[in-house]
């Protein structure tokens, strides 16, 4: 009779039998197991804040609401918001540019040229000495620079301001974004721009900002940098800035006042670029894409465009010439135009 004895046997696969190995390659376990979900990856980001500090606008807002020091409230909220951004990821960065009445100024990072008139020892009481250093360094510089800025504003109170410098600040902000993303090419780095403006006045000077702002929009889309806008007070709408956020996948928000501003900032404005894909953007309103007639200034939905300079007309131009570029139109075109108008 046969017998069986249980024992461990070692079966050896011959070395030249490559088949199982080749099978193993096609085996799914051999395939890279790391799912490359880009969402889970945490990338540091740069937040560039453009803040409109033109005193005239803020004074108007104060008058409107019979309160004072709105700008201070706003800046306080902004400081906390910057800290929040720095808290989000330890390698996050911030930059702040002020668009004041006479130009633009980097509040953070500090440019080394104005180091000489440093305002050390000034009133920095709103900053706690025991604060987290990373926050404190930013906050301290910011307050210091702001102090200098307001001093300057006091001196130049009678200088004329014909237009807002916001577009210039936005342009500078974009160059800064461009610089940082070039410097940190090796790590995937994301950026966004936040514009804080105060909207009384009803956009009288906006017209001079149109082309520069549009140029900023295109550059921002090229840089894949969303632009968020917070508008405090004034009218709810801001045509150009709304178009900005729409074209760059940003968020537009209108706040009645500075009360509770931090809550707005900490939610709607806190969407990190890495979260943009999965978070529902809060603005879902209609956006006005209409434009204005060059001659009458009225908002038009259907207009006539000069094929040379692209200016928009709603009425027959005087002298059959384009009012902007002086190109002469055919008699035929004009008559057709007039016929339709009637």
């Amino acid at each position: 009779m046969n017998f069986f004895e249980p024992f461990k046997q070692i079966s050896e696969k011959s070395a030249d039998d490559k088949k199982p190995i080749m099978d193993a390659i096609s085996d799914p376990t051999f395939q890279p197991t790391k799912p490359r979900s880009h969402l889970a990856e945490e990338t540091p980001s740069l937040l560039t804040v453009i803040v409109d500090t033109a005193p005239r606008l803020w004074a108007e807002l104060d008058n409107e609401r019979n309160q004072t020091g709105k700008i201070i409230d706003m800046l306080k909220s902004l400081l906390v918001f910057l800290n929040a951004h720095l808290a989000f990821n330890s390698s996050n960065q911030v930059a702040v540019i002020a668009a004041h009445s006479q130009g633009i100024k980097y509040l953070y990072p500090k440019s080394s040229s104005n180091q000489s008139n440093s305002l050390k020892g000034k009133d920095l009481s709103i900053i706690n000495n025991d604060m987290y250093r990373q926050f404190r360094n930013v906050d301290e510089t910011l307050v210091e620079e702001l102090y200098g800025l307001f001093q300057q504003e006091k001196e130049q109170a009678d200088e004329v301001t014909q237009k807002s410098t916001l577009a210039g600040a936005m342009s500078a902000g974009l160059t800064y974004v461009n610089r940082v993303s070039k410097e940190l090419e090796t790590i995937s780095f994301k950026s966004r721009l936040l514009v804080v403006t105060c909207g009384s006045g009803g956009g009288r000077d906006e017209i001079f900002q149109y082309i520069p702002i549009m140029n900023c929009i295109f550059s921002a889309t090229k840089l894949k940098c969303p632009i968020d806008v917070v508008k405090i007070g004034g009218s709810k709408e801001s045509t150009f800035l709304q178009q900005t956020t729409d074209a760059t996948q940003g968020v537009y928000l209108h706040a009645e006042s500075t009360e509770g501003l931090i809550q707005y900032l900490a939610t709607a404005m806190f969407i990190d670029p890495s979260l943009r894909q999965i978070i529902v953007k809060p603005n879902q309103g209609s956006v006005d894409f209409r434009t204005s007639c060059y001659l009458t200034g009225k908002v038009v939905a259907i207009g006539y465009i000069c094929s040379v300079c692209l200016c928009v007309l709603s009425v027959s131009p005087p002298g059959n010439r384009c009012p902007a570029c002086d190109s002469e139109f055919d008699e035929r075109v004009i008559s057709k135009f007039k016929r339709i108008k009637k």
């Binding site: 046969n2 004895e5 024992f7 461990k8 046997q9 070692i10 079966s11 050896e12 190995i21 390659i25």
Partner: peptide, 25 residues
């Protein structure tokens, strides 16, 4: 792939537990 293959090479030996039948008539 080669690094992975080198690892698989070490796993050439696979052990099974079981019973050997032998000495049939």
């Amino acid at each position: 792939d080669q690094i992975k293959l080198w690892q698989l090479e070490l796993d050439r030996i696979i052990s099974f537990e079981g019973s050997l039948y032998s000495d049939f008539e």
